[in-house]
C-alpha cells in the first residue's frame, strides 16, 4: 500500500519509493539518507504535533510534516 510518510502513525514502518521534493529540501533529504529503497520507522511527533521523528539507517532524524509529504512510502499491509 502506498502512503505518504507524513501520514504515518508512531510505530509504523515502510520503504521509501519516491521523493518528490525539489532543490534544497531534496538535497538535504538525500544527504541525510532518505533515498529510495530505504526503510523508515516513524517514532513520534513533537509535543505540538509537528515535526516528526523517524528512525532511518540506524539513527534518529527529525523533519517537518510538509517535508515528509514529499516522501512516498510502501507499507506492507
Amino acid at each position: 500500500m502506498q502512503k505518504l510518510l507524513s501520514a504515518f502513525k508512531p510505530g509504523e514502518e515502510g520503504i521509501v519509493t519516491k521523493i518528490s521534493a525539489e532543490g534544497k529540501i531534496k538535497r538535504r533529504l538525500f544527504d541525510m539518507g532518505v533515498t529510495p529503497h530505504v526503510r523508515i520507522r516513524m517514532r513520534k511527533a513533537a509535543p505540538l504535533g509537528d515535526p516528526i521523528e523517524v528512525t532511518i539507517r540506524g539513527y534518529e532524524l527529525t523533519l517537518r510534516k510538509n517535508e515528509a509529504e514529499t516522501v512516498m512510502m510502501e507499507v506492507e499491509a
Binding site: K24, I25, R28, L29, M32, V34, P51, E53, Y59, E60, L61, T62, L63, R64, E67
Partner: peptide
Amino acid sequence: PPFIMELPA
C-alpha cells in the same frame, strides 16, 4: 528554511 536534522543520541 527546511528542518531536516539529526537527533543525536
